[in-house]
Amino acid sequence: MSPAKKRPRAYDPAKIRTAVLAQFGNVREAVRTLTPEQLALPTRLGEWTVRELVAHIGMAVTAVGRSLDLPEPAKPDATLLDWPFATSVSAPAIDAFTRRLSAEHPDLDAYLAGVEQGLVAQLDTHPGSRLLETNAGALPLADYLVTRTVELVVHTDDLNAAVPGLDIPHDRQALAAATRLLADALAVKAPGGSTEVRIPPYAVVQCVEGPRHTRGTPPNVVETDPLTWVRLASGRLTWKAAVEEARVAASGERADLAELLPLMS
C-alpha cells in the first residue's frame, strides 16, 4: 500500500483505451522489424534479452485478462495511486512467467497480435466499473487500464535503449497518463506543499513537507521532461545522473528528490 492516501485524478476511459492500444500497436510494428540477432540482444532489465522483454510487454497487457478470469472482488480496497508502490511484490514470479512466454511463443508478431485481439474483446465485453483483483488490491478495470500506460511507456523506452537505432514512438496520450500517474504517486509518497514538480506539458504537483507556497515563484522547483520523469520514477535513471546531465532543473533547498526516487522498482 502507498504511504498515504490521495484521491486520484480522473482519466477519460475512452482516451486511455485508445492510448493503450496505440502504444501497444507502436510496439507491435517495431517488433516486426527486429532480426533474430536484435531479439537476442541484452537489455537493462537484468538477464532478459530483447525477446524476453517483448514477451513481458505482452504479459503486461494480458494481465487485464488474467484479472478478469478471477472472481470479481466484492468491493474496491485500493486506489489507482496504490499501484506504483506494489509493482515489485511479484518480481520472481513475473520473471519466471516472462521466460516461459518467451520460450512458448517463437513467433512474437503472432503472439502480440493475439494479445491485442484479446484485449479489445475484453474491453468490449466488460464495463470500466468491473472490479479486478490486482497486485495493488481490488481496482476498477478503468483504473487498472491506466496502469498499463505506465507499463507500455516504460518498456517501450527499455526496447529503444536495448536496440541501437530503434526509435519506437510514444503515443502522446499514453505518455501523458503515465507521467501524471507517476507524478501523483510522488505527491502521495512525499505529501506537502513546499516543492513544485513541473513536468510540462502534462503535470504539476506539490510535494515535500515544509513551508507551503501560496503565490509568486515557488522557493523550491523541480522541472523535467516527461520521458526523463518516467525514467526517474521507474529507476531507469538516477537523480544524480539526471541533474549532472542537465535533464532536470532543480532549485531550492527542498528540491533534491534523490531520497524519494525511484517510485517503482
Rank of each mutant, 00 (worst) to 15 (best):
D158F: 03
P219K: 07
V64W: 09
V197D: 03
I16H: 02
R51C: 00
L53T: 15
L21E: 13
R9K: 09
A30G: 14
N160H: 08
A30S: 13
D225M: 12
L112V: 02
R212Q: 14
E223D: 09
R215D: 14
P71W: 01
D157V: 11
V20H: 05
A190R: 06
D167N: 15
A78E: 10
E52S: 04
V188L: 00
Q122F: 07
L145P: 00
I16S: 00
E72C: 04
V89Y: 09
R28A: 12
P92N: 09
Q122E: 14
P42N: 08
E259M: 03
S88V: 08
T228I: 08
R99H: 06
S129P: 08
Q122K: 11
A250C: 02
A103S: 13
P169Y: 06
S129A: 15
P76W: 06
D167W: 04
A10C: 04
P219M: 08
V248R: 06
G165K: 07
A22Y: 06
R231Y: 01
A174Y: 11
V64P: 03
P201H: 08
T238R: 03
R180P: 05
D12S: 13
F97V: 08
P169K: 09
L132C: 10
W229V: 05
T33A: 14
V204C: 10
G216Y: 06
Q38F: 01
A103G: 10
T217G: 01
R130G: 00
L182R: 04
D225I: 04
V64F: 09
A103I: 07
E72A: 15
A178F: 09
H105N: 15
M1F: 10
R130A: 12
L41F: 07
L108A: 05
E259H: 13
E133I: 03
N220V: 09
G118N: 12
L132V: 07
P211I: 08
T134Y: 00
T87D: 04
R172I: 12
P36M: 06
A138Y: 05
D124W: 05
V204I: 13
V163K: 06
Q23C: 02
A183D: 02
M264F: 10
A74T: 13
K15Q: 15
D143A: 14
A86H: 08
V243S: 03
P164R: 08
L166Y: 07
G137D: 07
S234M: 05
A190M: 04
A142K: 10
D225S: 13
R247N: 05
L145S: 00
